[in-house]
């Protein structure tokens, strides 16, 4: 169908070449740029704090995407249940003295419960 897709070349090495070119390279290039760029950035705490704010917000966008527009079987669970599971799980994490495991267990319980209730 589309040219040079994952399944378009029937050679044993092709999937690995695809992973390196379309997965490894476009990921690690940012890591390398980060190393090279950090050497040039002035060592002021404000520049680094700005980088931290952007980094955190970018991961937050990833979090929201995984919850709001998920790929795979998660999409079968209603959006409102996914949001509620994340929000309540996070609230429990805070109430439990920032214990990640508490937040995870509650979020998963709500998600699985909702999956049973709505499907």
């Amino acid at each position: 169908m589309s040219p040079l897709g994952y399944h378009d070349i029937a050679a044993a090495w092709w999937p690995y070449a695809f992973i390196l070119l379309a997965g490894f390279l476009p990921t690690d290039v940012w890591r390398w740029l980060g190393v090279l760029f950090a050497g040039r950035v002035s060592e002021t705490s404000q520049a680094i704090a700005f980088a931290r704010a952007i980094a955190t917000s970018l991961v937050a966008a990833v979090i929201a995407r995984l919850v709001l527009v998920p790929d795979g079987p998660l999409a079968a669970v209603p959006t409102i249940a996914r949001i509620a599971a994340l929000a309540i799980g996070f609230a429990v994490y805070l109430l439990a003295g920032k214990r990640i495991i508490a937040g995870i267990l509650v979020a998963e319980a709500i998600l699985v419960g909702a999956a049973f209730a709505f499907t």
């Binding site: 589309s2 390279l25 680094i48 970018l58």
Partner: peptide, 21 residues
């Protein structure tokens, strides 16, 4: 396609640069 996939992965991995910095 290869190019389309690389672009999508690059956009999701861009966050790693400020993290490394």
């Amino acid at each position: 396609s290869l190019a389309g996939t690389a672009l999508a992965v690059a956009l999701s991995s861009l966050r790693l640069m400020p993290m490394v910095v």
